[in-house]
Structures are given as C-alpha cells and as structure tokens.
Design a protein around this nucleic acid. Structure first.
Length: 647
RNA sequence: GCUGACGUAGCUCAGUGGUAGAGCACUCCCUUGGUAAGGGAGAGGUCGACAGUUCAAUCCUGUCCGUCAGCACCA
C-alpha cells in the first residue's frame, strides 16, 4: 500500500497504481469533475497518472494559479490542431507557454497572417467545444520516429533525436490529433475555456539559430476567464500609452528620421533631461573618485585590430574610406575602452596610482542590424556613461563590489528597487586563456556574494574579452533591457601594452574593469520615460512649471515669475496665449508638465499663485514667495538633498 | 540580417486606375474667459524613393529606404 497525504494533512492508503482521478472520484464526484490536474509532491502532473509511491497530493482546479500554464499549454496544442486541420501539410514544431500566453511554431511555405486568426480561433473553439480528453501514451523512439516521419513531421523527428536516451517519449492525444510533448495537460480540451486570443504572427528560426529555416510563430494569450483576458488586453493598451516613442513625441523630447536610422535628434526638452542626468552622474562619479576624460571619436582602425574588435565586429564598425593622400582607414569608436587605455599608458603609472578610474560620457557608434533598432532602447549612436577602473588583481573583487553598490544606490534614486542582476560567463568565441577567465569569473562571483544580491546565470553570454554582470531593467510592455554593466577584463590592457610598475619594480599588466551605470543614456532615458509614464519628477522634468495666465492682465506678472524662477535655477515657462484657462490646463497636462501656476488679475494684485499638480485636480493658492521656495526645495536632485544633510 | 505587416498634411487616420480628404495641431480675426478642448476664417501634401505596366499610377508590379512586431544579434 502507498500513503497519500492531502493538503489538509490527512493521510490515506491506496493500492499502488491508483490514478489521481480515481482518488478524486473516491472523495467526491464533484471534486473529480472540477479537478483538471494534480500536483504530486508539488510537481504538476496529469490527473490520469498512476501513483505508486508515498506522495502528497493536491488537486488543481481551473482557478488555481498553477492551472494557468496548463490552460495555455493546452491552448497551444489546440492551436496546432486547428492549424493542421485548416492547412493540412503544415508541420508542427514546438509550442511552449510563455509569460502572459503561449505560442506555436509552424513550418509552411505560405506564411500565416493575422487575417487567418478568425478562422483559426473559430476552429479552436470547435475543438474546445468537443471537450476531447487528453490521453497520454509512452512510445518507443523507433515507433515515434516512424509515425512522425510518415506524417511528414520532419521537425518532430529532429526533436525526438534530441531527447536524452533515458527519458520517456510521451505522446498526448486529443481525439485523433496527437503531439509529442513533455506534458502535463488538463483532462480535456473543454477545460481551456474561451478566454483566449491569438495576438500576432512573427518569424522565428528553428531552434533559435539564424542558420536554420525560419518558421512562422503564432502568439496567443489565454486566461481562466473573460474578465482576466479583458484585463490583460486593457493592460496592454495602457502600456502602449507609456511607450517612450509616443511620449517622446508628445512631450517634445526627441525624434528620429530616415536620414539617420538609429540616431536621436534630441530636442531642447529632451536634451535638458539628458543634461540633468549627466550632471547627476558627474556628481556621483566625482564622489566615487573617478576622473572624467574625453577621447577621440575617430581613431586608426589598426587600434581595433589590436583589441580584437575588427575580427569579431568588423561588420558593426563605421569605417572611413581610404583617401588618396593617406592610406589609413579610421573607425568611429564603438567603445571607449581603448581610448582610456591610451590615457592610462600616457605617462608611467605606478601601483600607487591604482585603482585609477577614468570616466567618459563617450558617444559611440555601432552598426546594429536594422531589425534590432527600437526607439531609444536600441540605437546605432549612443552615449555611454562609461568608465574604466584600472586595478591590480587583488583589487578586482573590492572595486567590483564598490561599483555594484553605487550602481544600486543610483538606481534607487529613480525608483528602481528590484533591479535584476545577470552574471554572464565565458562565451564560446573569446580571447585569452581559460586560467585568466577562471580568475575573472571568480572575482565577479566573489563581489556578487559579498553584495548579497540575488542574481541569475546567463550562460556563455559574456563579452569576448571578459565576463560581465548585467543590471537589467524592464520597459512598459515587459521587455528586458541591459542598462548597467560591470565587466572584468584581463585581456585588453595587455593587448594594448598597458602596464604599471609594481612595488618590486617589475612591469605588470593592470586589470581593467569596464563599468557603466545607466549603460546608454539614450536607453536609460527611454526606460525612465516608461517607468514614470511621462510623469517625470520635478528635478528631471524639462519644464518644471508652466505659468498660465487667465487674462492678458497678468502677462507681465507671469513673465516676472518665469524670470525669477530662472534666476534661482528653475525651468519655468509662461503660456500667455489667447486661450481659456481650461484649454491651457488641458494642453499642459497632456504635455506632462508637473506643475501649473495659474495667475490672473487677482494673483497679480496679491502676488500669489494658484498651484495645480499633474494628475490632480486640486488647486491651492499661496504667496508667490512660498511657492517658489517650495518648488526650489522640491527640485533639488535626490543626491544633493542627501548632501544637504551633511553640510 | 531574417519572416510578416505598414509608409497619405506636424499628429491620428479615411480614400480612389483619371494628380487627394477628416479631426486635432498651425496662422489670422473675434472673444479677456478662473482650472482638461470658446467661435470663425485660412494655409498646409512630389500620397517614402526609384524603376516598370498603362492613354493615365498615390492606387497595380518590382527594387530600394524607413517604421512596427517577433526571431537572430547586442563589445
């Protein structure tokens, strides 16, 4: 007999080989009816699975959070059946669950389009309405390959070959249709319900490799009920309103145009934000002992041969043409590091100079693939808040930890409390000995452990010259972007001939730590806009207050307020337009101006202002001097607010 | 780069094989109005670029450029 433990702690004995469904039926028919799967010792399993050991069991109903992935996975199978029914000859490949939904990759000569969705969804509803039971069979490798080969499912045959020898080959059937699948599934297609929707089609390479054929991927989303589906769709609409490309236009921050793909035209307001951020970073860097330098935009391409970039990234470099009177080819810098190494090399350095921290707001250019470009997030010309810390091997972990800590401090100033850290170790294509890589990776791990922050491993994703930590932020629609980074480089300084004089008098190659806090200013601004949904805090907002006149009687008073604001370092503007106050309030609210100072004849006479904050309909009248003092205090950047406590 | 979709006024979008339209924005006039759109008039377009088909192309075909989504890439 086996002992089964129930969620309430009760234990019961059963004969080995009893299925979950039988146990549920034994308890009550209604439980069996509403149970769609089970968890054995916490692991989701088919309700039909036979139990032959002591376990704890939980019956999963449709409203259990764990049912969500089953609903989506089953929906993917139904999608595949629907597509193969409508277009026989289409090959199936894989169809996993993803965040917020699922997809299925198909191979077919004719691509699918969104116009096909209604037909596919209709067929899916039919399959769901038939409430076909999911049944599982375990096949032998040979049998499975034979069946799929005969069906012309060549991709499935390849998948079977990739399954490790010890693992069972499971086939899930829903009526006549079946698929190779790891499972588990719900008891029948009817459990999926009707709260699903096909979202988009896209190409995707077979097995994620650009050398392989391209498949058509159909994305869908599925939820336990219509309400949750509607909520999700509504959330997507709201996220669209936060899109920095849209807000960038609405707030008059920047634009792009065809002549400069992947390069930003910063407008005055966007540049104000950019400058506010660089000033902030300058203070932070100075505080941490960095020296700001500036290195050439264009250097002999030979330098990039030395670093290894020409070999690995030739296609991504912007190169000049050879000139008749000069045989040399120049490259626009894709990174700042070689420039900083030149600064380091200029003049003899001693171990006493280390750690030496060189920083630069370096504008770099990379010929990114056209399909990679995305607003401010992925551009071809961007500004790094780049720095290189030259250290001895012994100093690596300590300096890395310092950078990590400052980075997290800085992110907090922008409300990013839960930054995710990825540790990317050695890639296949790399320079330098493995002994060196061992050291570099160990140093980063030590720093991570000492910081106590959670992190995940990003296997094989390091830079070609060294491992890295990536600090990842998420945009409005859930896409992840690398912002900050720390990289340990035991290769490049040596390649470029940098050394310092050790206490022994020997020449020793320094280790270089590459670090960026925002990463790319452009990307960080994109993330910030979406993070704040355009509602920038006062210290960042390009226009901090708009003085709106009620009638032209207050024009000169309004202008005076703007001037006084400017004199104390506040960015005010006046709206003297011949429009009603309703119109002005609406216009500037839509432009995300954080503070509206409304002035009419009354305020001009009494020297007061009526204050209205973005996102609120409250209005408060107060003496102008008080309002000015209040806004001035509020507009102090967070780091300077902290510093005031020190003075 | 790959697959697919898209490109018409500053923005959002209609539209047609016979050289274009709306709303908002813009300019001017009237209005001086107290917290999310006052009224009127006007101006504004090589219909992404280049070829081809056609008597005639913004519309059909092709190539290119750009944008969007996903994939691949991301020093």
């Amino acid at each position: 007999m086996i002992t089964v433990t129930f969620p309430d702690g009760a234990r019961r004995e059963f004969a080995p080989g009893i299925s979950g469904l039988e146990i549920a039926k034994g308890i009550s028919p209604s439980l069996a009816k509403r149970t769609i799967a089970m968890a054995l010792d916490g692991v989701l399993s088919d309700l039909s699975d036979k139990i032959d050991r002591d376990v704890s069991i939980e019956f999963i109903s449709r409203d259990d959070p764990r049912a969500l992935e089953l609903i989506r996975h089953d929906a993917a199978h139904v999608l595949a059946e629907a597509v193969q029914t409508l277009w026989p000859g289409t090959q199936v490949t894989i169809g996993p669950v993803i965040e917020n939904g699922f997809y299925y990759d198909f191979y077919r000569n004719e691509p699918f389009t969104p116009e096909d969705f209604p037909a596919i969804e209709k067929k899916m509803r039919e399959i769901i309405a038939k409430d076909k039971p999911f049944t599982k069979e375990v096949w032998s490798r040979e049998q499975a390959k034979k069946v799929f080969r005969e069906k012309g499912e060549n991709f499935k045959v390849e998948l079977i070959d990739a399954i490790p020898p010890g693992e069972d080959l499971k086939i899930y059937k829903q009526g006549d249709w079946f698929d190779l699948c790891r499972g588990p599934h719900m008891t029948s297609t009817g459990k999926i319900g009707n709260a699903f929707k096909l979202m988009k089609v896209a190409g995707a390479y077979w097995r994620g490799d650009a050398k392989n054929p391209m498949l058509t991927r159909i994305y869908g989303t599925a939820w336990p009920d219509q309400k949750q589906l509607d909520q999700y769709l509504h959330m997507l609409e709201e996220a669209e309103k936060r899109d920095h490309r849209r807000l960038g236009r609405e707030m008059d921050l920047f634009h792009f145009q065809e002549e400069a793909p992947g390069a930003v035209f910063w407008h005055a307001k966007g540049w104000s934000l950019f400058e506010t951020l660089t000033s902030y970073l300058r203070r932070a860097q100075m505080d941490a002992g960095y020296l700001e330098v500036n290195t050439p935009q264009l250097m002999d391409s030979q330098l990039w041969v030395q670093t290894g970039h020409m070999e690995k990234y030739r296609e991504m470099l912007f190169l000049t043409e050879k000139r008749e009177d000069d045989e040399r080819v120049f490259a626009i810098k894709p990174m700042n590091c070689p420039g900083h190494v030149q600064v380091f090399k200029n003049g003899l350095k001693s171990y006493r100079d280390l750690p030496l921290k060189l920083a630069e707001f370096g504008k770099v250019h990379r010929f990114e693939p056209s399909g990679a470009l995305h607003g401010l997030m992925r551009v071809r010309a961007f500004t790094q808040d780049d720095a290189h810390v030259f250290v001895t091997e012994e100093q690596i972990a300590e300096e890395t930890l310092k950078i990590n800590n400052q980075l997290l401090e800085i992110y907090k100033d922008f409300g990013f409390e839960d930054v995710r850290i990825k540790f990317s170790d050695r890639p296949e294509q790399r320079i330098g000995d493995d002994v060196i890589w061992d050291k570099a990776e160990a140093a980063l791990k030590e720093a991570l452990e000492r910081s106590g922050k959670a992190w995940t491993l990003n296997k094989g994703e390091g830079a070609f010259y060294g491992p890295k930590l990536e600090y990842v932020l998420r945009d409005a629609i859930g896409r992840d972007w690398q912002c900050g980074t720390i990289q340990v480089d035991l290769n490049m300084p040596g390649r470029l001939g940098a050394f310092y004089i050790a206490p022994s008098g020997e020449k020793v190659t320094p280790v270089m730590l590459h670090r960026a806090m925002f990463g790319s200013l452009e990307r960080f601004i994109g993330i910030l806009i979406e993070h704040y949904a355009g509602h920038l805090p006062l210290w960042l907002s390009p226009t901090q207050a708009m003085v709106c006149t009620i009638t032209s009687d207050a024009d000169s008073y309004a202008q005076e307020l703007v001037q006084t604001g400017a004199r104390v370092g506040l960015r005010f503007e006046a709206d003297l337009a011949n429009e009603k106050i309703n119109y002005k309030v609406r216009e500037h609210s839509l432009a995300k101006i954080p503070v509206l100072l409304v002035v009419g004849k009354k305020e001009a006479n009494e020297r007061t202002v009526s204050i209205r904050r973005l996102g609120s309909t409250d209005q408060k009248s107060m003496p102008w001097e008080d309002a000015l003092a209040m806004l001035k205090a509020e507009a102090v950047p967070p780091d300077l607010q902290r510093a005031e406590g020190l003075a």
